[in-house]
Design a protein around this nucleic acid. Structure first.
Lengths: 196, 196
DNA sequence: GTCTATAAAACGATAGAC
DNA sequence: GTCTATCGTTTTATAGAC
């Protein structure tokens, strides 16, 4: 499997990201060596340092890429002028689907925060807070319109997201429930939990 | 800080557990060395092997101890003949309080599962499932009595526990909300989410 | 851009003295 | 039960050839 010498910048970079993502999710950041990543890509360990200054920055770039993709996808869907109930339903469906499609990214983004440097941690947390603020705005809009009853919108935001994140821990494609059924069940619980 | 030679079996054991718990929670199992744990206890690394055959078994014993304590505490409180609404409220309050009192244990029990051997993993998962079954039984009792409307009790169980677990990620003693307020807010959401 | 080779340090676990 | 000492490996990261 040893690769011959030569330049492969355009394809090696994405392959490193993909290998690191999978291995970090499976074994954990600290338990994965640069040699393991290189082996999966088919290069020697030293070659990885043409693409990242160090191991931790590689992790950070993966997490930041995931969070930015999440924010962009959400922004492209949300309709701030729509009915709060419709917005909330769309959020629930979007969140479940987006996260189920990216189990490795989600796992890493929640489990490996402690392996980031202080400033990289702050950057990821800021992106996460921006995403949470999107849901909180929906809840506040619903409360202001008398459609929702939520004693504390900030806590309700965190509660809803935690509940939806839980889907990733048990859902398996081809299992007892279809994705559409899962979306319906969770939407039903969220809708009732915040109902006026 | 070097300790003199001598026998300290009765106190060293618990101190190893406490140090390992704290360090695993803070840095992750794979990122913590046996030397680090020993240093925190005040012994040499080799002495740890009087208390555990290897590092992974140390992790397993911590996780198993936590899960068994959880099950025992829950069993001591639950009243299977009580009203399902009362049982559910007690579950919510118990779960939040028990987990907030043990942030390190909870963090490890959820984050370090992949560092267990196959059989140790199965043992922990069995204990966790027993705990989940307790909540599921309450939901089924409420559904049977016409007090709850839950399309899928198994999923609702996982959703409620995921939501409650989320408290550990943000709650800080002395913060904006008291523990009692948190319990009330979450109970309100859970109650509504499963309401008939 | 990738290779080989290596530096410098840390790892889990064990042996044997006390 | 704890110590010192160490074995055999593995680690991240770098240097220099190609």
């Amino acid at each position: 499997m040893a690769r011959t010498q030569g330049s492969h910048s355009d394809i090696t970079g994405p392959r490193i990201d993909a290998a690191a993502l999978r291995l970090f999710a499976q074994f954990g950041f600290a338990a994965v060596s640069m040699r393991q990543i290189a082996g999966e890509v088919g290069v020697q360990a030293g070659a990885l340092y043409n693409y990242t200054p160090d191991k931790q920055t590689l992790l950070f770039r993966l997490m930041r890429g995931h969070m930015e993709e999440l924010l962009a996808a959400r922004a492209a869907r949300d309709a701030p002028e729509a009915d709060p109930l419709d917005r909330l339903r769309d959020f629930v469906r979007f969140h479940i689907r987006f996260h189920l499609e990216r189990p490795d990214e989600v796992f890493i983004a929640y489990m490996e925060l402690r392996n980031l440097s202080e400033e990289n941690f702050a950057a990821i947390e800021a992106l996460r807070r921006r995403y949470e603020d999107g849901l909180e705005a929906i809840l506040r809009q619903g409360v202001a319109a008398g459609r929702f009853t939520v004693p504390d919108p900030k806590i309700a935001t965190l509660a809803v997201i935690a509940m939806l994140n839980g889907v990733n821990t048990w859902y398996r494609s081809g299992g007892r429930l279809t994705l559409a059924e899962v979306e319906t069940i969770y939407w039903d619980m969220v809708r009732k939990a915040v109902a006026a």
